[in-house]
Design a protein around this nucleic acid. Structure first.
Lengths: 204, 204
DNA sequence: TGCGATCGGCACCGATCGGTACCGTTTGAT
DNA sequence: ATCAAACGGTACCGATCGGTGCCGATCGCA
C-alpha cells in the first residue's frame, strides 16, 4: 500500500468536504476518490461524523501551524506582527479556491450548537483568537484583551467577504481596518489601569 | 382554508431552514409542519430548490425592509445613521436565536457559486452594501464608496461572531470598530479628488 | 344548487443515504 | 516460506431523499 488507507481517507474527505460541503459529500464519494474499500473505512472510523471530526481536528492543527510559521517567516518586529495576520490571510485565500473558512462552514452545517462538529469548529476559532491575543501582547499592546476579539471579528469578516466576492480582497480590506484600529491609542480607562500597575510595581 | 397553502409552506420552510439548515430539512418535514399535502406542495413549487429560492427572496425583502424601518425609526440625524446599523443588528440578533445570517448559511450550503441559491444570497449582500453606501452618502461621507464595503465586512464579522459566541455581543463589537473607522478623517487622496470635483464644478 | 379550483392524504417511484457482513487478496514482518 | 493484520470489492440492510399520480373532500363563487 502506497499510503495508509486512513491517511488517504482524511485527505480525500478534507478536499471534498471543503469544496462541496460536509452533508453534500456521501461516504461513497469519499471511498471512490480515496480508493479505500467500504469495510476499511469503518475499520478506521466508527461513523462518518467521526471522520468529519478527525478531518476538522487535523485541518485546525495544520492551519494554525501554517499561520504561525507564515507570520514568523515574515521576520517582522513584534509590533508589526498582528497586522501581518491579514497579509497571511490574503495569501491563504488566494490559494484556497474561495470556499471561505472550513470551520465557519462546519458551524453552519452542524446547526446544533452542542454537536461535536460544531464544538470543534468553535474550539478552532477560540484557538486563533488566543493566538491573536498573544501577538498583540508581544507587540506591547496593553489593551490586547479587547483588541484580540476585535481583530478576530475582522478575520471572520475577511473570510466571509472572500466567499461572497470570490476574491482575496476581503483580507486586504480587513487589514486596512485593522491598521486604523491599531493606530489608535488604547482606551484611556486601560491607560489608568496600566499606570496603576506600574505604580504598584514601584511600591514594592 | 385559514391561510393559503403557499403561505404556510413559505413560513414553515423559512423557520426550518434557518433553524436546522437547508439540506438538513427534507420536504417531508416541511409538509408535516405546514400541514400541506405533498401534491399541493408541488403544485406551488416545481422543486425544493425553487422553494428555497422563494424563501430566501422573501426573507431578503423582509429583512431589508425591517432594517430600513428600524434605522428610520430611531429618528437620528443623517450623520449618526450609519453607525446605528450595528445597534439594529444587535437588536435583531437578540431575537434571531443565534443561527447567524440565513444568507451566509445559504452561501455555505450551496457550494456551487453559479447555483441560483448562491446567487440570491450574494444579491442580498450586495443590496445591503448598497444600503450602507446610501446611508454613508446621506451622512455626507465623500469616501462612502470605500467605507460601505468596510462597514459591510464589519457586518459579516458581527454575524459570524454571533453564531460563534451565541450572543449578540458581536454586533456591539463591530459597532465599536465602526465608530473608530468613521471618526477618522477621509483618506487624503479622496480629499484631493473631492477638491478637484469642486474646482471643476466652479469652472462651469 | 352546481361547478371548478384548490386542497390534504396516500401509495408509489428510483436513487441515495449511512452502516454491516463476508469475501478473497495483498502486505510486511518474522 | 509463513502467518496475521490490513486491505479492496461487493452484496445487502432499513431509512430517507426528492418527486409523481391519483383520489375524494372541501372551498369560494355564481
Amino acid at each position: 500500500m502506497a499510503v495508509q488507507a486512513r491517511e488517504r481517507l482524511l485527505t480525500a474527505a478534507e478536499d471534498l468536504f471543503y469544496a462541496e460541503g460536509i452533508r453534500a459529500v456521501g461516504v461513497e464519494r469519499i471511498l471512490t476518490v480515496s480508493g479505500v474499500g467500504r469495510a476499511s473505512f469503518y475499520r478506521h472510523f466508527a461513523s462518518k461524523d467521526e471522520l468529519v471530526i478527525a478531518v476538522l481536528t487535523r485541518t485546525d492543527e495544520r492551519w494554525r501551524a501554517w499561520l504561525r510559521e507564515t507570520i514568523t517567516g515574515y521576520g517582522l518586529p513584534a509590533g508589526e506582527r498582528p497586522i501581518a495576520v491579514f497579509d497571511a490571510l490574503g495569501e491563504w485565500l488566494d490559494g484556497a479556491g474561495y470556499r471561505g473558512c472550513a470551520f465557519i462552514n462546519a458551524m453552519v452545517e452542524a446547526a446544533d450548537r452542542t454537536s461535536p462538529v460544531h464544538e470543534v469548529a468553535v474550539a478552532h476559532k477560540d484557538a486563533v483568537t488566543d493566538y491573536l491575543d498573544r501577538l498583540l501582547a508581544e507587540a506591547g499592546r496593553d489593551d490586547h484583551e479587547n483588541l484580540a476579539p476585535e481583530l478576530m471579528l475582522l478575520v471572520e469578516g475577511a473570510l466571509v467577504t472572500s466567499l461572497r466576492e470570490g476574491t482575496s480582497e476581503g483580507a486586504a480590506r480587513a487589514g486596512r481596518i485593522a491598521r486604523v484600529l491599531l493606530a489608535r491609542q488604547p482606551d484611556p480607562r486601560d491607560a489608568v489601569r496600566r499606570r496603576l500597575r506600574v505604580v504598584t510595581g514601584g511600591i514594592r
